[in-house]
């Protein structure tokens, strides 16, 4: 019991540190790829601290509600993951964060945030379906949705789920808000919709959402590590490789339209995952 409580406190803190650090690496690496020097690794933390100390200003009370709910859900999902819970429950809890992000963004009449919310809904749809398919694959291979059963597997899941891993990479790109799928709120400061779903969140609210975003990415990378859960070095290297690959892709790709994302990106990913699932059964 004490252990669980300690874990419940430690995991979100560690994840915030890790997520912020990853974001720092991302910004620095991107700058280097553009032959700039880039900000220090601590930059994301400084940004968030500054945001948290800014004035609170809302155009609709929901904008104050949403970020807290979003961050809470993200942290809670991570704690569940650390406790080796039921993957479906983790995904359902994780989903809540996205729901509230969109609700807050839609609550403002700004056309930018409205348009971006519609796109965000499609992005959510793309990510959620693929994650649930991964949960299904987990069940078909281990006979349970509980993560605790996974360590008993003799060989890495990746051997049996190669196509699903490709689909997961798509979901990771969408979730990290990276080109070519950064339609609803680019992770860089600027896009054609101002800042997409984040446009209307001011100061501390943006800060909370930024932390929630870090936590989400950590959860995704943790799910990524499930694909090679048999050896500890691989559990670190595989997500790291995926993360770096997304950043590379971000720097060479242009933004696609949502039609393209939904039709080709998600369509292909879904078909690949479905194929992979039907193998497992057979």
């Amino acid at each position: 019991m004490m252990q669980t409580a300690a874990l419940a406190l430690a995991v979100p803190c560690a994840a915030i540190l890790l997520g912020g650090l990853l974001s720092g690496i991302d910004r620095r690496l991107t700058a280097r790829l553009q032959s700039r020097q880039g900000p220090p690794l601590s930059q994301p933390f400084l940004d968030v601290i500054k945001l948290m100390a800014k004035e609170r200003m809302v155009t609709n009370p929901w904008q104050a509600f949403s970020p807290v709910a979003s961050l809470g859900a993200a942290a809670f999902a991570l704690v569940f993951f650390a406790l080796q819970g039921d993957l479906l429950v983790i995904l359902f809890v994780h989903m809540v964060g996205g729901v509230f992000l969109v609700l807050g963004a839609m609550a403002s009449p700004s056309p930018y945030s409205q348009t971006a919310s519609q796109r965000e809904l499609w992005q959510m749809l793309s990510c959620e379906t693929l994650l649930f398919l991964i949960a299904g694959a987990l069940y078909l291979t281990t006979g349970s949705f509980r993560l605790s059963e996974l360590s008993a597997l003799p060989e890495p899941l990746l051997y049996r789920l190669p196509l699903l891993f490709a689909a997961f990479f798509f979901a990771l790109t969408v979730k990290m808000r990276k080109s070519p799928f950064d339609l609803a709120g680019c992770h860089h400061a600027h896009q054609e919709l101002v800042r997409g779903v984040f446009t209307e969140y001011v100061g501390p609210y943006l800060g909370l959402l930024e932390i929630a975003h870090w936590l989400d990415i950590v959860l995704y990378l943790a799910i990524c590590s499930l694909f090679w859960a048999t050896s500890t070095p691989a559990m670190i290297l595989l997500p790291l490789a995926a993360f770096l690959a997304v950043i590379m892709l971000d720097n060479v790709a242009a933004r696609l339209t949502w039609r393209w994302m939904l039709g080709w990106g998600w369509g292909a990913a879904f078909v690949l995952s479905a194929l992979n699932l039907s193998w497992l059964k057979g």
Partner: peptide, 21 residues
């Protein structure tokens, strides 16, 4: 631009008054 690269100092051009300092 890379010539001056003010992002070194954490400067970001946000294009949105709600996020700007």
């Amino acid at each position: 631009t890379p010539v001056y690269d003010v992002e070194r100092f954490g400067v970001v051009n946000v294009g949105n008054p709600k996020h700007a300092d």
